[in-house]
């Protein structure tokens, strides 16, 4: 790891000010991606601004049909939330599939969303639920937020403070894990709200998380796993690596989508 410096704000405004005051500074929340990346010397922030002590960025709030999860809320807290489990169990299932117990104790939803790792789970949830990414400057629709591999609509220094979304009628998540890293080799989140269905795929796309329009149309007409049987998932645009080529991933997209629908009920 290269040398760095460390700052610990207790409010969003203090965090933003600290970040602005230092060149090459980065926010760190759980650090489950950033710290290992720094250890490999693939990232070299001159300063770290720690968000774990910003109280306004923590916690899960359900107000009627609106859910707000503070960006610094750890995965373990989301996975264990009984309120979320009764309101939308797919969210807790997804959070409980991220990393391992120790990673879930540290890693946060905001870090996952802002990093936009192509194999991360939360981007699929945000996209499928049509979530809103709340920052210290504005609100960004998930459809506009994820712009490519490790790329988002965030401006330099912009801080994700919360994720909000309306509860769906039905939602499900199915994940096929990379046998080595346990990240998503393919993860599919499906959600239905009114007549509208959204299907978001992570782990498979060469450009990161994406929506599968054919499946959305099929499921909007017939909410069942069988509705997906006739859909041919193209392998173009999908990732290929030693664990799975694009043909295999195309198959997984379909299989995981079916399983997500079954899980959603």
């Amino acid at each position: 790891m290269y040398a760095t410096s460390y700052h610990r704000p207790s409010s969003i405004s203090e965090a933003a000010a600290l970040l602005a005051a230092t060149d090459e500074a980065k926010y760190v929340s759980g650090g489950m991606t950033l710290i290992p990346t720094m250890k490999q010397r693939l990232a070299a922030p001159a300063a770290l601004v720690d968000l774990r002590h910003v109280a306004d960025m923590k916690g899960i709030h359900i107000d009627g049909s609106r859910v707000r999860i503070g960006a610094a809320t750890p995965h373990a807290e989301v996975a264990a939330s009984s309120a979320l489990r009764s309101a939308c169990p797919a969210v807790t299932v997804l959070a409980g599939l991220i990393g391992d117990p120790h990673v879930r104790h540290m890693g946060t939803i905001g870090g996952s969303i802002a990093n936009n790792d192509p194999a991360a789970d939360y981007p699929a949830l945000a996209l499928a639920l049509g979530a809103t990414i709340v920052t210290d400057r504005r609100e960004i629709a998930a459809d506009d937020f994820f712009t490519g591999l490790f790329e988002t609509a965030l401006e330099p220094g912009e801080l994700v403070t919360a994720i909000t979304f309306d509860l769906p009628e039905k939602a499900g998540y199915a994940k096929f894990r990379n046998p080595a890293s346990r990240y998503a080799m393919t993860g599919v989140f499906v959600a239905r709200r009114g007549g509208s269905v959204r299907v978001a795929v992570t782990g498979a796309g060469a450009d990161g998380v994406f929506r599968q329009a054919d499946m959305e149309a099929a499921l909007a007409g017939n909410w069942s796993a069988d509705a997906l049987s006739g859909i041919a998932v193209p392998s173009s645009g999908l990732l290929s690596d030693i664990h799975g080529d694009s043909d295999y991933r195309a198959n997984l997209v379909k299989v995981m989508a079916k399983r997500a629908v079954l899980a959603a009920g």
């Binding site: 460390y6 650090g31 710290i35 250890k39 770290l48 120790h102 540290m106």
Partner: peptide
Amino acid sequence: VKSCSILAVQ
């Protein structure tokens, strides 16, 4: 927690 992925200052 995994103490290899947390800075002592954190």
